[in-house]
Amino acid sequence: MSEVGLVTVGVSSGGLQALKLLLGSLPADFPLPLLIVQHLAPESGDGMARLLADCCAIRVKEADELERALPGSAYLAPANYHLLVQRDGLMTLATDGYVSFARPSIDVLFESAALALGPAVIGVVLTGANSDGARGLAAIKAAGGVAIVQDPADAEASAMPAAALAATAPDYLLPLAEIAATLQRLAQRGRGARHV
């Protein structure tokens, strides 16, 4: 049985609505941190994090450099920075070049999580019109983590979930509305196992 300690989420076009529903469905005491890459224009501020914070029970904020990822909290990658996570649960930022045409890149977050925390990671690919996240989700799977993909038929933009499906066989292929409940089940199962 996988031990679960961290949820990573990748989302692109259609992301605001998708994140409102997903994060809005999680209770304040959701036992895991969520690290999120939403593709953004380079000079976007933290407006999206503020907006989501207002409509979610869990805490939502932009990730700061070397900030600890806490349970019941969702952290968005800042515009123009990659977001990574260390084995000790601290988040780091990077200005490496675009990966999969994006910065922040979902692949970077997912790969760093897979490298740092292996089987303790749940990767979630949601709506989007590109293929970022596919390689990263495969890395999470290969490291023993759990892969969840939004059903492309249910996604506002189907390309990104479809690319993820082509890259790896997910553990769960779900409509958006069912993902929060699945995360809660997985989190309960892994609770106390390996916290970050």
Binding site: D88, S112, L115
Partner: peptide, 11 residues
């Protein structure tokens, strides 16, 4: 160097 970036780059 910070762990996460160096590990990813080495990989």
């Amino acid at each position: 160097y910070a762990d996460a970036s160096i590990r990813r780059r080495l990989a």
